[in-house]
C-alpha cells in the first residue's frame, strides 16, 4: 500500500445479511473439513471488516462464536436439522477467526482458525447442580467404558467388525454410578463373528462410519453396558489420481479418520 493511502475497508453491521452469509459459508466449510467431534452452528458474529480485494472481490474478515451440536461431524444430517447442545449437557463453544472471499456473488473461505472450549463447571452446576460434567476423553474409566461398549456391540453384530475411530464425549454420572460415552466407529473388512485379531482388520475402501452412545453402569460384582449405534450411509471412494493429473491441493486434505491431522480445527490455507 503506498504511504499515506488509507486502507480500503468497511465495517458493516454484524447482522447484515451479507455478513451472515459469509459467516454461514465459513461454518459449512469448517463442518465439512473437521474430522473429529461434533458439527458446530453459528451463534453470534462478534466482528466484521470487509476489505476491497484487487483486482476484484471483497474479503470478509470475521470473528464468530459457534456452539456445538449433537451431530457428529461424520453424521450426514444437514446442520439445520442438528440440535444445539444445551448448557445442562455441558455445552461447548467455538471461537473462530475467518477470512471469506466474496467474488461473483460466491463465498469461498480463505482462512479459518477455531478454538473450542467447554462451558465452565460453575456455569453448568449453577443451572443444574446434579448434572454430570464432561470427563477427560483419555481417562482410564472412559477408555474402559468405550472398550466394553464396542466389544458388546461387535458381539451382537452379524455384519462387519467395527473399529473405534474416536472417543467424542464422556461424562461420569453419579447415580447410578456410571460412565456415559459417545464415540465414532468405522466398518472393517473383517466379519464381527469371525474376527480373531482386530489389528489385522482394515477399514473398508468405501468408508462406513457409525456413531455410538453407551452407558457402563458399575454394579456389585460387575458392570452392565447399554450401547446404541447409528450407522451412516457409506461414503463414496475419493477420486483416484490419474496419470497426468495435477498434484492434489494439499490445503484441502481428504477427511480420513484413519489419518487424523494433528490439529483438526485449523483448516484451510493461511493467507
Amino acid at each position: 500500500v503506498p504511504a499515506g493511502t488509507a486502507l480500503a475497508y468497511r465495517e458493516p453491521d454484524c447482522d447484515d445479511p451479507e455478513t451472515e452469509q459469509a459467516a454461514l459459508a465459513a461454518v459449512d466449510y469448517i463442518n465439512n473439513r473437521v474430522v473429529r467431534g461434533y458439527k458446530h452452528t453459528l451463534n453470534q458474529i462478534d466482528k466484521v471488516r470487509v476489505w476491497q480485494r484487487r483486482p476484484m472481490g471483497e474479503v470478509f474478515e470475521l470473528e464468530i462464536d459457534t456452539l456445538e451440536t449433537t451431530c457428529h461431524v461424520l453424521d450426514p444430517t444437514p446442520l439445520a436439522n442438528c440440535t444445539v447442545r444445551q448448557p445442562m449437557q455441558h455445552a461447548v463453544e467455538g471461537d473462530c477467526d475467518l477470512r471469506v472471499l466474496k467474488q461473483d456473488g460466491q463465498f469461498s473461505v480463505l482462512f479459518a482458525k477455531c478454538d473450542s472450549s467447554p462451558d465452565s463447571a460453575e456455569d453448568v452446576l449453577r443451572l443444574c447442580p446434579d448434572c454430570p460434567l464432561l470427563a477427560p476423553l483419555n481417562d482410564t474409566k472412559v477408555v474402559h467404558a468405550v472398550d466394553v461398549a464396542l466389544t458388546a456391540f461387535n458381539a451382537q453384530s452379524n455384519g462387519s467388525y467395527f473399529q473405534l475411530v474416536e472417543i467424542s464425549r464422556a461424562q461420569f454420572v453419579p447415580l447410578p454410578q456410571s460412565t456415559y460415552v459417545e464415540f465414532a466407529v468405522a466398518a472393517t473388512d473383517c466379519a464381527a463373528k469371525d474376527v480373531m485379531d482386530p489389528a489385522k482388520c482394515n477399514l473398508l475402501a468405501e468408508k462406513q462410519y457409525g456413531f455410538c452412545k453407551a452407558t457402563l453402569t458399575e454394579k456389585v460384582g460387575g458392570e452392565d453396558v447399554a450401547v446404541t449405534c447409528t450407522m451412516f450411509q457409506t461414503q463414496p471412494l475419493p477420486p483416484q489420481p490419474q496419470p497426468g493429473d495435477a498434484v492434489a491441493d494439499p490445503a484441502v486434505p481428504a477427511p480420513s479418520p484413519a489419518n487424523l491431522p494433528a490439529d483438526p480445527l485449523l483448516v484451510g490455507p493461511v493467507v
Binding site: D13, C14, Q44, I45, V84, P87, E93
Partner: peptide, 27 residues
C-alpha cells in the same frame, strides 16, 4: 433534515452494529 455542518443532527436510537445477535445462548 438539513443542519449546519458544525452541528450534529439529533441522534436517533443508538444501534450497535457489532457484536450481532445471539442465536441460541451465550456460553
Amino acid at each position: 433534515k438539513v443542519v449546519q455542518p458544525s452541528i450534529a443532527a439529533a441522534a436517533g436510537p443508538l444501534v450497535r452494529p457489532c457484536p450481532g445477535r445471539i442465536r441460541h445462548f451465550k456460553v
